[in-house]
């Protein structure tokens, strides 16, 4: 045998560290880190800064693990859709088996470590979140119903609740409201994107609302969910996590969001095509700011509380 027999082609098992890291969906992880951190800092009671850091880290690792499990299960449709062909498994850098092993190992690791660092409730909530995203959303709902992102959005809504539980050891009205805020925000956010993105979900056999029920129905859904979202977002302002800053931010943002949803609902496809979905794109941009500023305001209230300024 000589050195000439060495296969120089990219194979599974010879992926770089970045390829394995990409399995954890780092961009999704950033939202998980931010909202979990806000939940943790807004919670009443104290937690040691190092334990807080560890808790957010383990929540992020748990979120990443569910991303790896999602990539393992969805490798077949990721290969079909342009947006996802460069992911580690369809591009041939990482094998499906490796993604599954990494996903399962990190899931167990993150839940046990969060439990040891904080408490059993936080560990159990993280385990449920991973189960919900990997099994309920990815394996069950995603290819079955156009309401997939509505129910699946719950998995993205759990992180602030886990952060809150890491400090308090329980669930409360405030943490449920933070959950509901992300849960109700997810549908208008994703459906606005679906309206202007030329996605190939149809080719992949994923029933997105724009494909199964048409764009008119999607516009109706965006308005309905935005109307349902407003009282939750503003209502949170009257609880322990709220305060004058949060309430002002929430009122302004919800008026803007409702106006945007109303404009999207009022117009038809022809009008949208004329201006190349300008309104839908600006609504999507606003939705990103909407979530960031709501949680930023909760964070501001929590940060100002020690100085007697935040909260009611």
């Amino acid at each position: 045998m000589s050195d000439a027999s060495i296969n120089t082609q990219t194979q599974g098992g010879e992926a770089g560290f970045r390829d394995y890291f990409a399995l954890l969906k780092p961009r999704v992880m950033s939202l998980v880190v931010f909202t979990a951190m806000v939940g943790l800092l807004a919670a009443p009671g104290g937690i040691h800064p190092f334990i807080a850091f560890c808790a957010v880290l383990f929540i992020a690792v748990g979120g990443g693990a569910s991303g790896a499990l999602n990539m393992w299960w969805d490798a077949d449709i990721d290969q079909v859709m342009k947006r996802t062909t460069s992911r580690p498994i369809p591009s041939g850098k990482v094998t499906g088996g490796e993604a599954l092993a990494i996903g399962l190992t990190l899931s167990v690791f993150a839940c046990v470590m969060l439990w040891l660092a904080t408490n059993a409730v936080a560990g159990a909530l993280l385990a449920f979140t991973i189960f919900f995203y990997a099994v309920v959303y990815t394996m069950w709902l995603k290819r079955w119903t156009p309401q997939n992102i509505v129910i699946g959005g719950a998995s993205g809504a759990f992180p602030p609740m886990i952060g809150w539980a890491a400090v308090t050891g329980g669930v409360s009205v405030e943490s449920v409201l933070m959950f509901m805020l992300i849960f109700m925000w997810t549908p208008p956010h994703f459906w606005a994107l679906a309206l202007f993105m030329n996605s190939d979900y149809e080719k992949a056999g994923v029933p997105m609302l724009t494909v199964t029920h048409g764009r008119r129905v999607t516009r109706n859904h965006i308005l309905v969910y935005t109307i349902l979202l407003a009282p939750i977002a503003i209502g949170a302002g009257f609880t322990e996590i709220g305060g004058p800053i949060y309430l002002s931010v929430a009122v302004v943002l919800n008026v803007l969001f409702l106006l945007g949803a109303f404009k999207i609902w009022r117009r038809n496809e022809g009008q949208a095509q004329v201006d190349k979905y300008r309104l839908e794109k600006s609504f999507f941009g606003l939705s990103l700011m909407y979530l960031f500023l709501h949680f930023g305001a909760i964070l501001a209230e929590a940060a100002l509380k020690p100085y007697g300024l935040g909260g009611w």
């Binding site: 992926a15 560290f17 190092f50 334990i51 560890c54």
Partner: peptide, 29 residues
């Protein structure tokens, strides 16, 4: 291929060192 393998080994090594540091820090706290 060697570069990728080396990068993976260094990355994993750093992750393990970070894990030891985290467990040590958590224990101290």
């Amino acid at each position: 291929l060697h570069k990728r393998r080396s990068g993976r080994n260094i990355g994993l090594g750093l992750v393990l060192v970070a894990f030891v540091a985290i467990v040590f820090g958590m224990t101290v706290v």
